[in-house]
């Protein structure tokens, strides 16, 4: 079983310490929910793990491979950014042939919710449809670990359920780190919840802990 190991991450912005000696690990088949207030550094942490963003100090490893940049994370870590990342001019069919490996293409195309979109261009889809297609591409990608930055943003409840169902379906083969302000859905899907606060991670066991740390009110 593969393991993503993140250690000693330290990052400052404008002399303010954003992330301080962050440690976390994620195994294949595990979903980690990462919560935190706006500006707490969740996206920055995901981008550092992915290898895109530099940090003053970092150690990221998948099995024996140390991830220093995005080239190292090839086939190991994929990242869903907050904004759409797929080139808009592509049809979904072309996109699948360019992004998904040959072995998985047929299964992906035959997914009932993908089929109606195959001939459509990505740019012509609605915001929610775009998000769903992007998430599905990553779920079916070769990477062992997927970092999802606000996957539920702008998504209707029924599409959220669809995403969660598909995530559960491919869960055994991948590890996930999900961050989103829709903490109820994150808590529903995650095996472990971590709260990023004042640059450090805190283990969350229940909603009571979220109240205690001031992430939600006790109402």
């Amino acid at each position: 079983m593969k393991r993503l190991q993140v250690d000693s991450i330290r990052k400052s912005y404008h002399q303010k310490l954003l992330l301080s000696d962050i440690y976390l690990s994620c195994e294949q088949g595990e979903v980690i929910g990462l919560l935190g207030r706006n500006g707490s550094g969740k996206s920055t942490l995901l981008r550092i793990i992915f290898g895109e963003e530099k940090a003053e100090n970092k150690f990221v490893k998948v099995q024996d491979r140390i991830i220093k940049n995005v080239r190292d994370s090839r086939h190991l870590i994929n990242y869903l950014p907050q904004k759409n990342f797929v080139p808009g001019a592509l049809t979904i069919k072309t996109l699948i042939s360019l992004f998904i490996s040959e072995e998985k293409r047929k299964t992906f195309r035959e997914e009932t919710f993908i089929e109606p979109y195959l001939q459509q261009k990505f740019r012509h889809l609605s915001g929610g449809e775009k998000r769903m297609i992007e998430i599905m591409l990553l779920l079916y990608s070769e990477a062992d670990f997927i970092l999802l930055d606000e996957p539920f943003e702008g998504i209707s409840p029924i599409t959220k359920e669809l995403i969660i169902a598909n995530l559960e379906k491919v869960k055994p083969s991948k590890g996930y780190i999900i961050t989103d302000h829709d903490y109820e859905n994150v808590m529903k899907v995650a095996d472990r919840i971590l709260l990023l606060q004042n640059g450090t991670l805190k283990e969350i066991k229940s909603r009571k802990d979220l109240e205690r740390f001031g992430y939600v009110t006790g109402l």
């Binding site: 995005v70 080239r71 994370s73 990342f85």
Partner: peptide
């Protein structure tokens, strides 16, 4: 990010 996810 599209290209980063492919490994470029």
């Amino acid at each position: 990010y599209y290209y980063f996810n492919i490994g470029f």
